[in-house]
Structure formats: C-alpha cells, structure tokens
C-alpha cells in the first residue's frame, strides 16, 4: 500500500472511518430502538376498524393482521403513501379558514428518493467487476433520452431537481421556515453538494473513468492503491459521501430504518383481540375473587353472604 499523503487521507482514512461510523452507529441506534419498550399499542388508524363481520373494515389503513400491517409499511416505503395525506391550512380575509390537500412534499420526496436509489445502484459499475448485467440494463433505461455527451442520466436531473425543490419548499413557507433547524438544512445541502460534484465529475472534468474504477476497486478489495489520472474533484465527491455516511446514523436520515421500526406504522390494530402487555409494568399482585373467597369463606358464611363454593 503506497498511497501518497493527501490521497491516503481523503481516499482511504476518511472513507474508512466514515464506514465504521455508519455501520457502528446504524447498529447501535437500531439495537437501542429494539430494546426500548413499547408501553402502548399505538398503530395510527385511518379507516374503519375491524369489528363485526358485516361492517366492512379498511384492511390497509386500519390493518388487523400482521400481513396487513406489513403491506402498509411496504406501501409507505415504496410509494410514500402517508405523505399523500398532508393537508394545508390557510386563513383568508373574512376570516375564512380553508383546508386543502398538499402533495408537494410527496412529489419532491418521491423524485429525490427514487432517483437516489437508481444513482446508488448505477454506481455499482464502479464497485463490481465484471459489471452486473442488470446494472447495465438500469443504466440503459436511465440514458433513454440520449441527450448530451456524456449522456445525461434522467436520475441525475431528478435528484438535483428534487433536492432543490425540497429546499425551496422549506424556504418558501414561513411556517416551515420557522420550524426548520440546522439538522433539516444540513442533509439537503450535503446531498446537493454530492449531486453537484458528481455531476461535474461526469460532465465537466473529463475524468479517466477506468482509473477511478481501479482506485475504487482497490478500496473494495481492502488493498488501497495509488492510481494516477484521478481528478481532485473525485476526492471532493468522495469526501462529501464520507461525511454523509459518518453523519447518517446520528441524524434524521435514520428515518430509513426508522420507518420500518415505528410502532405507529408496523403494529396491527388488534388490541381488542390480542392483549398488549406493557413491558415496564411492575409485577402486579393480583388477588382474584376465588382466592378472596378461599380466604374469607368462613366469615362470609357466618355473615350470611352467598359463596360460590361451599
């Protein structure tokens, strides 16, 4: 391993530490959540609960089986269905109050997340040798429009556009700006930085892609090597990605595993059929009626009270 100083720092040390923070933090957080008790049975219900057989229940929005709950989680992950329920409240002169559906967050979030998934999967061409056929197929669809040289990927445009619109959304509404804090802006700027450096890398830097792949494969084989012909911009992209990985577990980006682990979404609404025991209840000393009668039977009979057993 003979990698010169700065390249060693930005190309090997920082990414390795970031990977440690990512997996370590991710497991730490997920295990912490798995260990915290769920005192109440708290699924969010958005439809008719299952009751009598002749009342039609809403199996998706008020699931009463684990299967139904799993389906609801899957639709939330794949289609961001809960965001479709967002509403906007406004007061006009009069005063008149209106409520209207607000689906911008849904649209921008879907644009951004799905294109990010496609981009990350496309990146596998740099990490796997030989490049898997399905990555090439995905890439072919992404290059469908054949615009520009090198061809501009549809996912790149949607990624940067989606992030830009998410940022604008936060900035343009006074209410939203009021509740937005650094932890909301930082991931947006970070991801925009990653998108910008990646796009510049592909479209303006004339980089030697084979050299970059050789460097990346060096990391993947855990034997980093110095490769000439890699532009500094690549290390900027890599550094920002390292920051993202390192920051991920300690931030709101943990909504990724969080959505799977949130009891409001993943519990079936069957609290009348299945008893939910609060795990932090202290053991309650129960004195049942049968035991009570055993204890006081003699005196009860003396006092002329009715008893179950003689």
């Amino acid at each position: 391993m003979d990698v010169p100083g700065l390249c060693l720092f930005f190309g090997v040390i920082v990414p390795s530490l970031a990977v440690v923070s990512f997996f370590g933090g991710f497991a730490w957080k997920a295990i912490g959540w798995a260990r915290s008790p769920v005192p109440f049975h708290i699924p969010i219900t958005c439809g008719q609960q299952r009751s009598l057989p002749w009342i039609r229940s809403n199996r998706l929005d008020n699931p009463h089986t684990p299967m139904g709950a799993a389906l609801r989680v899957a639709l939330a992950v794949l289609l961001f269905r809960p965001l479709l329920r967002n509403t906007m409240t406004e007061i006009y002169a009069g005063p008149k109050l209106t409520y209207a559906p607000s689906r911008w967050l849904w649209l921008f979030a879907v644009m951004f997340h799905w294109s990010m998934l496609v981009i990350v999967l496309r990146h596998l061409r740099l990490f796997v040798e030989p490049v898997p056929a399905w990555v090439l197929t995905l890439q072919r669809f992404d290059r469908f429009f054949e615009v520009g040289h090198p061809v501009i990927h549809a996912s790149t445009v949607l990624f940067v556009l989606g992030l830009g619109l998410l940022l604008l959304r936060r900035l343009s509404s006074p209410q939203l700006r009021y509740i937005s804090i650094l932890n909301d802006y930082f991931p947006l700027f970070l991801l925009l930085g990653i998108g910008a450096t990646g796009t510049l890398l592909r479209h303006y830097s004339n980089s030697d892609a084979a050299a970059i792949k050789e460097f990346v494969m060096g990391l993947v084989t855990l034997s980093p090597l110095a490769v000439s012909g890699i532009p500094a911009l690549f290390y900027v992209h890599l550094f920002l990605v390292s920051v993202l990985l390192a920051y991920f577990p300690w931030s709101k980006l943990m909504h990724m595993p969080g959505v799977l682990m949130s009891p409001t979404l993943n519990l079936a609404n069957n609290s009348r059929a299945v008893r939910h025991v609060n795990p932090w209840n202290p053991p309650v000393g129960v004195h049942s009626y049968a035991e009570y009668e055993d204890e006081f039977r003699g005196r009860m009979i003396e006092a002329g009270l009715p008893v179950d057993k003689l």
Binding site: A27, I31, L124, V220, P257
Partner: peptide, 20 residues
C-alpha cells in the same frame, strides 16, 4: 427480527466486498 434485518442490511451493503 431487528438482528436479522441488520445482518441482511450489512451483508447487502458489503456485497461488492464478498463478490471480489
């Protein structure tokens, strides 16, 4: 479930390493 999920996640995320 959480332990299983975490293991699947790490295994998939490190797939390029297993492949080489």
């Amino acid at each position: 479930k959480v332990a299983g999920g975490l293991m699947v996640f790490v295994a998939l995320a490190c797939a390029p390493i297993w492949l080489v």
